[in-house]
Structures are given as structure tokens and as C-alpha cells.
Amino acid sequence: MEAAKAFHAALPAVAAFQPWPDDITWADREAHQIPAAPLVQSDPGFAAESIPAEAQVRALQQAVMALAPHAEWRLTYTEEEVGRDFLQRFGWFELVGPTGHFHSAQSRMTIGYWGPGLDYPWHQHGPEELYTILSGSADFMARGEEVRRLVPGDTKMHGADQPHAMITNEHPILCFVFWRGDGLADDPAMSPG
């Protein structure tokens, strides 16, 4: 939590997206492992050097790697929606939020991991979203926007109900994702793109 808070304070785009919640309480969630959880520890993706807030990005990446065996990992999607391979190399957990390790009604902050060469299909959700990249890279797509490759230290915002997708490159990607707005406890839904 301290690494997450320092990261939030060090990146102006993150602090501008939403203030740090003042209603955070420990929620004592049980660990839940999925196939991708060990991958976070063994290969979280490359961490670039000489990026904005490099120390805070690396500290949060290291904290996530240490936390991986103790997190309540989730998958959200079905095999019919994304395929078996995707589910073997994808996962996320809610650090802060309505159902997170730390409870907050003001914000949702999740950690997401996608293995190399994964196609994260078009999906959408009610809350606005800000992706921040801790390690790895991916090509991000959003309706009405040009494709953009993100690397460590980069951020990408998606509007409420804006369909978006991602394709990871030759390395895994580890992201710290922020949601704000109505529907913080809701899961994303697949969209036609």
C-alpha cells in the first residue's frame, strides 16, 4: 500500500485523475491463486530505465511481485469469451476498492497482468479508467482513437463505456489501473469494438 501511495503521488497524470481515497480500510481478503499468479513473480515484463518516477514504478513492481502469492487473483472472463490460453496467462486483483484487499467506496485500484502475445478483446465498463504501465509493453486501442504503444511510466485513459482493447508485445505487461465514477464494483463486459 505504501508503494502504491508513493506511485500515485509521483505521477502527475495519476494524481490528476483522482485524489488518493481518504476512506481506505483493511478488508482481509483471502488469497486466491490462478495460473498466471506465479508468472508475475518470474516474468513481470521489462522495466525501462530513465522514465518519469522510475524509483516509484520499480518499487511498486517489486511490491506486486512480492504480494503475488498472497493476492486474491481474479479472471472475470470465461473461456468462451477469451480462450483457454488467455486465462492461463492473465489475471488481476483489486488492491483498493469496493471488493479489494483494502476497502474504499471512492476508488477502485487494480493490478493487472497479461502474458506476451495476448489479444485482450474489446470490452467496456461504466467507470472511467486510467491505465499506468509498471513493466512490459502493449498496443492499446480505444474507439475513436489511434493505436498507442505504452511502455513503463506511460498512462492511458478510457472514458466511461468507451470500448477498448489491448495486444501485448513480446513481453508480459504489468499495470496499475485506476477507476473512478459509478459502478466501481462492476466487472467489464465484452463489446463489439
Rank of each mutant, 00 (worst) to 15 (best):
A55E: 09
E129T: 09
D154Y: 08
L87I: 15
G136R: 02
G112N: 15
Q56H: 09
E49Y: 11
S104F: 04
D139N: 08
Q61N: 01
G100M: 06
T110D: 03
A68D: 05
D154C: 12
V147N: 11
S135P: 02
S50T: 15
Y113T: 04
L75Y: 08
G126D: 11
L150T: 14
T110P: 02
A71V: 05
Y77C: 00
G115P: 07
M109G: 02
Q88M: 11
T132N: 06
A138C: 05
L118I: 13
S104I: 06
E80L: 08
E94W: 13
H123V: 12
A68V: 11
D154K: 06
R149C: 10
L75A: 12
Y120N: 10
E72S: 14
D85N: 13
E54Y: 05
S135K: 01
G115Y: 06
S137V: 03
R58D: 01
P121L: 06
L67D: 09
L134I: 03
L87V: 14
D119H: 07
F93D: 00
A53N: 04
Y77T: 01
T110E: 06
H70G: 07
E129K: 14
A48G: 12
H103S: 12
V57Y: 01
P98D: 08
D161E: 07
G153V: 02
D85I: 12
F93H: 01
L67P: 05
F86Y: 15
T76E: 09
Y77L: 03
K156R: 11
Y120Q: 02
M141C: 03
S107K: 07
Y77W: 14
P121A: 10
R148I: 13
A138K: 02
H101F: 09
M65E: 05
A71P: 06
Q106H: 08
Y113M: 07
Y120D: 11
V96F: 03
A105F: 10
I51C: 07
T132L: 07
S50R: 15
A66M: 08
E49S: 15
E129V: 15
H103E: 06
G159V: 04
P121N: 05
F102Q: 14
D161H: 13
A105K: 14
E146D: 13
Y131V: 05
H101R: 06
A66I: 10
T78V: 02
A142M: 07
M65C: 12
L130I: 10
D85F: 14
D161N: 14
R74S: 07
F93I: 01
E72T: 15
E129G: 11
A59Q: 05
W114H: 08
S50V: 14
W122H: 11
W92G: 00
L118T: 10
P121S: 09
